[in-house]
Amino acid sequence: MFNYTLRRLLFTIPTLLFISLVIFLLLDLAPNDPTGNLPLTIPPEVRAMIRTNLGLDQPVWWRYILWLRQFFVYEPLNLIEQMFHITIGDGHRLRILSYATRSPVVDLIVERMPQTLWVVGMSYVVGIMIALPIGVISAYKQYSWFDQTGTFVSMIGFSVPTFFTGVLLIVIFSVMVPSDSFFWFPSIYDTTLKVTDLASFGKQVRQMVMPVFVLALYNAAQISRFMRASMLDNLNQDYVRTARAKGLSEQVVVLVHVLRNSLIPVVTVIALGIPQVFGGAIITEQVFKVNGLGQLLIIGIQGADIPLVQTLTFIFAVLIVLFNLVADVLYGILDPRILYD
């Protein structure tokens, strides 16, 4: 297992390099342009100059190498400098700058981490906590009213997109409910809110309720379906019959034997979903004005902000590859039958 992990880790380096190249070429090929969102009153000659100034007249391979150097050498060095308050070399290195904000991309990402982790991360945790018990009970009592209701709700939750549920919640809880009521929730997320005492914590919770609910519903719908399917598969296995025949209590059979085995594929689904947490939730962030990583990415894409999008997607790629590895390793641990070596 250890060897396998090590080998996989080594193999991720060329994989990630290749992925970064593909992403870069893709972004370069894409037909949108950083001057596309500027007002039409800016004449074409000035636009051409802006492009030159951004370095877009350089050949693709050169810009790619520059980005590699910035990402793998300059940014880590800068991070070390900041952490230990020292200066390496002359301390002047061109960091990866976003086209639109002209500020270091890494700083932008760090600035947006908190709201994304709070909202999207929390919704994922809540989603899993709802989904697992629902999936288990639904499968154990297959076709009971609980199962039917669960199926119905989760299918609605999955098939009605978040742009709709989000607006619906806002119309109900921000518009229809009077603003002095306990059930009124803000429709706009305040990213500058600092949690210092109980009152500001309460505010933070209130502004998280609606976006977390919308996303959790969506996540729970998906995971509970996989959980239920996996449980159903296992409940009919011979080992369950053996365990029951051995006289084990139903609780032990279901919660120890069946659940453990059923969790194997579900763990993959959950692990694979984690990078998406960091990716933010583009639509939900947009609806509630959370302005996290998802919104940063979409603004970058719309504005053809290549350094921003490249860096952000590459970080996602790293997370995806790593979490896939984690899922595989977990798999091997949870299911001793699987041999990788």
Partner: peptide
């Protein structure tokens, strides 16, 4: 819009 008003030569 980013493509339409973008003026990218390849598009």
């Amino acid at each position: 819009a980013a493509v339409f008003f973008g003026g990218d030569q390849s598009s």
